[in-house]
């Protein structure tokens, strides 16, 4: 079908637990999207990943139809998991709260490659290292 795009909506919601409550309701509802159908399809597709955050990018078209693409979990979530942390430092650049190895950074970079605007895994590693440093995690 020849489609005409109306809006792109980016959400981060817990896998398998989307509901029509905010932020899903207002984000999609203002465009007249069939929220019930989105919630059902998102939860069906992300149920195996429950306990993590699965970001989603929703394309809404002018005739109120939609498609969505699931993304990899946020880099910060993966860094925290690798460093075995409950949360980041909360204060950029002022506190070291944990460590990750270069091998772990590479593993995260490879997982995130489909969603990163990086020309190579090495470039992606540098982006992940930046994310880690921003949240007080040292790369060793």
């Amino acid at each position: 079908m020849a489609k005409e795009l109306k809006a792109i909506i980016k959400l981060q919601i817990p896998a398998g637990q989307a509901t029509p409550a905010p932020p899903v309701g207002p984000a999609l509802g203002q465009h007249g999207v069939n929220i019930g159908q989105f919630v059902k399809e998102y939860n069906d597709k992300t149920r195996p990943d429950q306990g993590t955050i699965v970001p989603v990018v929703i394309s809404v078209f002018t005739d109120r139809s939609f498609t969505f693409t699931l993304k990899t979990p946020p880099a910060a979530v993966l860094v925290k998991k690798a460093a075995n942390l409950a949360k980041g430092s909360g204060i950029v650049g002022s506190e070291i709260v944990g460590q990750v190895s270069k091998a772990q950074v590479r593993e995260i970079a490879e997982k995130k490659m489909p969603d990163l605007n990086a020309a190579s895994v090495e470039a992606a590693c540098r982006m992940i290292e930046g994310t880690a440093r921003s949240m007080g995690v040292e790369v060793v």
Binding site: M1, E41, S65
Partner: peptide, 13 residues
């Protein structure tokens, strides 16, 4: 309206 394009509301359809 659902998950695939073509509800009849757009001039193309």
């Amino acid at each position: 309206p659902g998950g695939a394009y073509g509800t009849g509301r757009h001039p193309s359809t």
